[in-house]
């Protein structure tokens, strides 16, 4: 049943050319150079250090690596990270 609904969703997304993040609850990342990162659709902070930040996603994790990382602002679904970002890593 879940498989069917997922397939149906994928089909409608492809047919209607809808953005994937809206349909599948995927994170959307907006990055400004290496200094600002705006993440929508996260599921909370798992780990926070100055050089490493791990965020929970609906499926898997997102790892941000850099230096002088700071959470500028945080809401239930969005997080705004500042600092020198060198690497973004998706963990399944």
């Amino acid at each position: 049943m879940r498989l069917i609904s997922r397939k149906l969703r994928k089909l409608t997304a492809e047919l209607l050319e809808l953005p994937q993040d809206v349909v599948f609850d995927l994170p959307r990342l907006t990055m400004i150079g290496d200094r600002q990162l705006y993440i929508e659709n996260h599921r909370g902070v798992l780990h926070f250090e100055t050089d490493r930040l791990r965020l929970a996603l609906s499926k898997g994790e997102l790892e941000v690596i850099g230096s002088d990382l700071a959470i500028r602002a945080i809401w239930t679904e969005e997080v705004f990270i500042e600092g020198v970002i060198s690497k973004i890593h998706m963990v399944e």
Binding site: G44, V45, L46, A70, R72, A73, I74
Partner: peptide, 26 residues
């Protein structure tokens, strides 16, 4: 501490400019 951040966000308590000064202090 991470859990505090998450709970605060879901409770609508706004924390901003969160940065680490040492491994056990934020």
């Amino acid at each position: 501490q991470e859990m505090l951040i998450n709970e605060a966000a879901s409770a609508g308590i706004r924390l901003w400019a969160i940065r680490r000064t040492s491994p056990e202090q934020m």
